[in-house]
Amino acid sequence: MKILFIAPRFHPNQIDLVRKLKEENHEVFFLVLNFGPSEDHRLLKPQAIPVLKSIGKFNIEPLNNSMNYFKVLPHPSEYFRILKNIKPDVVILRGGMRSFYSKLLLGYSFRKNLKIICYTQMPQYLGKKDLRKKLLNLFETGVSQFKTYTPVKYNAKEGAFKKLNNLDYIPFFVYPNTKEIKEISENEKMHFLCIGKYEERKNLKLFIQIAKALKSAKFDFKITIIGGADSEKRLKYHDYLSSLINEFDLSQEIILLKNVLKKNMFKYFEAAHVFILPSRNEPASISQLEAMSYGLPIICSIDNGTAHYVKNELNGFLVNPDQEEVLKAMNNYLLDPGLVAKHSFKSLELVNSDFSINSSYQKFIQFLKK
């Protein structure tokens, strides 16, 4: 099958999906509006969507990382030429009908009888009677009559109240990366890992106060934070956190890294004992599942669409994204290091059962063929 993805960028949460599709002898293409500094293009080199630089006498602002992608206008004839050359069997579209690249594709599909599928991060089950989400779902899928899938089954913060029948749930794809259970020796420093862009909603600042408290309590620990700083705003936030670390003399306890290449991330997962994701208002994240594939226990905010990937008190802890609850969960491991191995075993078990790469692939292909 010839599969074309069209999205704002080649997000890391698509890498293992692309890898699996290629291993199963599908032809895979990716059209994007922009490229991130830490993207991994070893499997596939995305092609840029040609965009208009002007309309008549009016110039259009160049695309940058702070722009709203959905306002970018592709160059119609060049865009259609790419579609014609690829001749996909199916197009997987990120963003529903909100973007201009989607609207142009819709017009093209009517003429060419092109099969289009939408990918969203809206939960399959709504947690409450949320009119805004229902309307958004209808706009993205019902109005256009496209089949849609999501990696989010329900929001752990809100629970599962009502199923949206036009959404299929297919979890993120991830390959198992180890069979070894994480263990920590008696005198070993406990190493916590966090991954997230350098922006406020990722809630990284709380690690400053947490590190101060743990240092005061004489715990032996290290926190490594790895994040994207691909815009001036994110770089400023990184520098702000760095200044706080220096101000409170925490440079031995907190390590900040930015724009680490995807292909180099494995060594940080392998070196860590526990993974933490404290973000707020997170539609969906794959990083906790990646961490589970390395056998890491997980501390995850419940304000995250894919928090349900973590089984509370079995392979980690689901917490409110505040200092008190994150610190309490970290203390559980610091005070009982044996818990790391117990939760590590369960993380590996889940990756090979609930999130089996082969099972996810079969669901995906069956969905495409429906």
Score class of each variant (00 low, 15 high):
332 N>I: 13
282 E>G: 03
209 Q>S: 15
150 T>Y: 00
234 R>K: 11
253 E>D: 12
106 L>N: 08
125 Y>L: 01
138 L>P: 10
275 F>C: 12
349 E>G: 09
46 P>L: 04
349 E>M: 13
229 A>I: 06
183 E>K: 14
290 E>R: 03
304 N>I: 06
135 L>S: 06
100 F>I: 13
98 R>N: 11
44 L>V: 12
159 G>Q: 01
339 L>S: 09
282 E>P: 04
360 S>Y: 00
307 A>L: 01
278 P>S: 08
48 A>T: 14
179 K>A: 15
273 H>G: 05
275 F>Q: 05
137 N>F: 02
175 Y>E: 07
284 A>F: 06
270 E>I: 10
312 N>A: 12
307 A>P: 04
262 K>L: 12
284 A>P: 00
238 H>V: 08
139 F>T: 11
83 L>W: 02
329 A>H: 07
227 G>I: 08
218 K>N: 15
35 F>N: 14
249 D>G: 09
266 F>T: 13
121 Q>S: 07
307 A>Y: 06
115 K>E: 08
261 L>Y: 07
7 A>V: 07
340 V>T: 10
1 M>N: 05
201 R>I: 08
95 G>K: 03
211 A>F: 03
367 F>N: 09
258 K>R: 11
242 S>W: 03
140 E>R: 04
235 L>M: 13
145 Q>W: 14
24 E>F: 09
104 L>N: 02
282 E>Y: 04
324 E>W: 08
200 E>R: 14
308 H>Y: 14
